[in-house]
């Protein structure tokens, strides 16, 4: 049961979180009012709001959001299942980690959007191409950071576990995985960032559903209200994922254990 103090603090935090957005909205309303810009160039807040209400009412908004989220989760889960063990294996041996490090850094820079042309050639226009882009965006960043995390575990930690009788095969779950977690979380956060941008780009090009498609379709009909609505929703969903998924993951592990996350790209 959170105390009254805690509730108050939470409310204050929330207000501080919302305040800059409220300010931005205010600027928007005033600017549109003053300049009288045509809505084909930029919509008024009220127009975006009513577009949003309309799309919620006819269900089309949920459909696009649902498709996008499903693709994101599928691609990211697939990447996590493969990258984490793969990264651990590479990180165990320092020479192996050093050998693969440059190629992984190279791949992290390219991950996501730059792969869309190849993805559409390999998988055609559709779900699989988009999921591939997400997988790809998360995969390189997560593999690289997991590898780095394992290779940075203090040698004494490894020695302590071994001299307490840990057999080699148990080192994975007992030492390598938890020991590299600060870095794994960083890798996941960076990778998800790439993936979310990649998703929008891939959906613009490769499919007929999802937030990217909604954005692209609206442009064809000069529906600037829907364009801006899409942009807002894309940003909001990212904030929500970060705040309700990635940040708690970090709080429950790395922060609770007093381990500092190494920001590595």
């Amino acid at each position: 049961m959170p105390s009254l103090m805690a509730l108050r603090r939470r409310a204050v935090n929330l207000l501080w979180f919302i305040a800059p957005f409220a300010a931005l909205a205010l600027v928007w309303v005033v600017a549109v009012e003053l300049t009288d810009v045509p809505s084909r160039v930029f919509p008024a807040l009220a127009e975006v709001w009513s577009a949003g209400v309309g799309m919620v009412a006819d269900g089309s908004l949920w459909q696009h959001v649902g498709v996008s989220l499903q693709r994101t989760v599928t691609g990211a889960a697939l990447a996590a299942v493969i990258s984490i063990p793969f990264g651990i294996l590479m990180g165990i041996s320092r020479p192996v980690a050093a050998y693969f490090s440059p190629i992984l850094r190279f791949s992290v820079a390219l991950a996501g959007i730059a792969w869309i042309p190849l993805a559409t050639l390999w998988f055609g226009f559709g779900n699989r191409a988009v999921i591939f882009i997400i997988f790809n965006a998360v995969f390189f960043s997560l593999t690289y950071n997991t590898m780095l995390g394992v290779s940075r575990i203090a040698p004494d930690m490894h020695r302590a576990a071994r001299s307490l009788g840990a057999p080699r095969y148990r080192m994975f779950t007992e030492v390598y995985l938890p020991g590299s977690l600060p870095s794994v979380v960083t890798g996941l956060r960076i990778g998800m960032g790439y993936a979310w941008r990649g998703l929008i780009a891939a959906e613009i090009i490769a499919t007929s559903a999802g937030l990217g498609y909604m954005l692209f379709l609206a442009r064809r009909f000069y529906h600037t209200d829907i364009i801006v609505l899409s942009m807002i929703i894309i940003g909001l969903i990212w904030l929500a994922m970060d705040r309700f998924l990635l940040a708690p993951l970090e709080r429950r592990t790395v922060e609770r254990w007093g381990m500092v996350a190494g920001a590595t790209r």
Partner: peptide, 20 residues
């Protein structure tokens, strides 16, 4: 031969597992 549970080590760095 190699590390083993018959020889326990106390480290200068403590080497406790921070996640446990």
């Amino acid at each position: 031969s190699g590390p083993g549970a018959d020889r326990g080590v106390v480290f200068q760095s403590f080497a406790l597992f921070p996640w446990k």
